[in-house]
Amino acid sequence: MNEKQTEQKVTLATKDLHAWFDDFHAVKGISVEYPEKTINAVIGPSGCGKSTYLRCLNRIHEEVPGAKASGEVSLLGQNIYAPHVDPVELRRNIGMVFQKPNPFPNMTIFENVVIGLKLQGYSKKSYLLEVAEHCLKKAALWEEVKDKLNRPGTSLSGGQQQRLCIARALAVNPPVLLMDEPTSALDPIASAKIEELMTELKKEFTVIVVTHNMQQAARIADYTSFLVLGELIEHGLSSQIFTNPKEQKTEDYVTGRFG
């Protein structure tokens, strides 16, 4: 599709991915490749299946009663929909950040960050502290919380909570970070901070972000996919999607004539 893309290593690729809620066909055969260390936006009108699509990438979609998915998603070359793959084990390799900041209410800031590691059997306090500091620094939260690591995670402001959730996702050092409208519940200042953080994270991780905010996608994403009613209309460099789309539907959407 694009020269730059073929040069880079592909972290995550989907091939003919479908998803259903009971009888409702929400995602209809999407095939995309995500190159390493890029930000990839998924945009589309609400109800187009973009969140469902994202949730198929770490197989959390199938946890909803009545939901199922089929197709192929390869993470670093391995198909995560292969029969031998344990979805729980898989999710430990993929970070996810949700629409609403959702730190665990019964855990402190510190516990929230290291919970992923604890689950994998790490229990040495000094190591956990080191990782917590590292991740909180990466999530640009360390300076604000370093003196109150033992306060509940829910005591922070919305934007801080979202960065805490990002730190929590980073702690297991996943190759891919999925973000489901991570700024839609935040005010503009907190959103800007998260966006800034995402461009930082790009240096180490591959980020896939669902957003309903086209300006945001244009600002931060290297590649953008446009979905309508579960179908992939167009995928390409953001610069191309937003300035020179190939499809009429994409042009209508990005210029605000549709959706």
Partner: peptide, 15 residues
Amino acid sequence: PTHIREAGLALGLPR
């Protein structure tokens, strides 16, 4: 809320 459960699942916790 469901999203708290999903946060746990997304971290790779068994249900």
